[in-house]
């Protein structure tokens, strides 16, 4: 029996994330419990962890820090035990070393890189809507270029090329999926990306 935990630290639409995982596991007859929690025991007992994130980077980081021991437990899960971990939107951005959103704020630093503002040029911000995600090479999450739903104004500038799993274009080419062994981060919202999103979730869980 799998236990998929959506980390609950006061950010955004955790319910939609939970519902999308419930839908996918049900449809595929995967025995799984999908819970929303910030209890250390639940993190410890998980087979998969999803870190969602909405709003400002610093607010999300403070939210994580609010529960004593939560970051340590997540680190134990992802970096020591190397179990499947998925960051979504700001949950992906928090994997970086730091962010320049509203000042300078430290991130988890699991994947080397900085969170930078998308250059506005003549484009509307936030980058909101459906855009293509183009995989760089063969991977577990997506097979081909498909549209996913984005809402963001900042992007993950990866330091190392090997952590770039997929890229998208909005004014510039930016990283839309990061990877490091068992750790994945997606800039878009798979839980809002219709069948493409659900199939990504299925691939992550399987």
């Amino acid at each position: 029996m799998k236990q998929i935990t959506i980390v609950d630290y006061g950010s955004g639409n955790v319910l939609s994330a939970q519902k999308s995982f419930v839908k996918v596991t049900k449809e595929n007859n995967t025995e799984a419990r999908v819970i929303i929690s910030k209890k250390l025991i639940d993190i410890k007992n998980s087979t998969h962890i999803v870190l969602p994130g909405q709003g400002a980077f610093s607010t999300c980081m403070s939210g994580l820090k609010k529960t004593p021991g939560l970051i340590d437990e997540l680190q134990e899960f992802a970096l020591v035990k190397k179990k499947p971990f998925l960051g979504i939107c700001v949950g992906m951005q928090m994997l970086a070393n730091d962010s320049e959103e509203n000042g300078f704020h430290k991130g988890l630093g699991w994947i080397d890189g900085h969170i930078k503002a998308l250059p506005a040029k003549n484009l509307k911000l936030p980058h909101m809507g459906w855009n293509l995600v183009n995989p760089k090479n063969k991977n577990k999450l997506i097979n081909s270029s498909e549209n996913y739903y984005f809402v963001h104004s900042y992007y993950f500038a990866c330091k190392n090329k090997e952590n770039i799993l997929a890229e998208s274009q909005y004014g510039i080419n930016f990283t839309s999926i990061v990877v490091k062994e068992n750790i994945y981060g997606v800039q878009f919202h798979p839980e809002k990306s219709s069948s493409s999103g659900l199939s990504l979730i299925k691939n992550f869980v399987s």
């Binding site: 319910l15 939609s16 519902k19 839908k23 739903y149 219709s194 999103g197």
Partner: peptide, 11 residues
């Protein structure tokens, strides 16, 4: 809205 979110995975 709650019921819709169970079934519909677009914004």
């Amino acid at each position: 809205v709650e019921k819709t979110a169970n079934e519909v995975f677009i914004p």
